[in-house]
Amino acid sequence: MTHTSSTDMRVQPKRPLLQRLAGACEPYLYSAPSLVLIATVMLVPLALGLSYAFRDVQILNPFSGGFIGLDHFRALSQDQAFYRALRNTLWWTGASVFLQFFFGLILALLLDKPFRGRGIAQALVFLPWAVPTFLTGLNWAWLFNPVIGPLPHWLFALGLLDEPGNILSDPQLAMWGPIVANVWWGIPFFAITLLAALQAIPRDLYEAAAIDGAGPFQRFRSITLPFLAPTIAITVLLRTVWISNFADLIIVMTNGGPADRTQIVASYIFTQAFKRLDFGYASAISMVLLVLLLVYSMLIVLLRQTMLNRD
């Protein structure tokens, strides 16, 4: 084969500048509208909000607005209500995510099997996700209300309650109200994402495993779980962050009561900001929550990386 000798390397003619520029710009042009919107409506307010954490911002006090350094954080470190809210957040988030995930996984496995009427069954069980959250809250509050809801009477009949009262006003049990509503509303999210991941698993893997003599439980452990693991990791991470920030149900159902028993950090921020109108303090709490969530996410990502590296 004849070859032009390598000394004959042509001088690289540069592409016309304008054309190169247009080519390099194209992806930015597509993403620019979204980015501009996110920057102006989320990032700028976020920066402002962070600055409030170091200022005295009270809506009804015309003399507020001054820079006060770390005063808010100092107050926060003494605030027993905040620590209680933090503990409640752990409880609220942990229980909600676990139950949503557990029941969502079972539902996804049930729906992964073809059967007659699957389409309609799927549409019906996913319906709660479409219910507006404030309505979910109201709806469950009504269901727990002994005057018009059946739940207290059923729980009483089952012997789970001493009397058909409202668990939302019982300090020991109140948190279960929003958690149940949250689980009802959130199961479809896990079911949808896990179902999508399940349907992406090649069918012949199961057949091969069955021929190799693996029972249903072994097939689940050695094929389904490893395939689902990435989806599980990312959905659990996103949901955990999201649910810790999710105050709608609690505000609608219990407003943090009784006796702050259902006050989570997110609803505590809401109370500080809109009941006491102390935006500076609210921003300081938000900042702490944001940092905690970032640390949590980093930990999960790191954990995932080390697990991936180990294999």
Binding site: V57, A273, S286
Partner: peptide, 16 residues
């Protein structure tokens, strides 16, 4: 952006 406590944005957005 999926991680922000949105409550934190209410006052700044209102001001803007």
């Amino acid at each position: 952006t999926q991680m922000f406590p949105l409550v934190m944005l209410v006052a700044p957005i209102f001001k803007m």
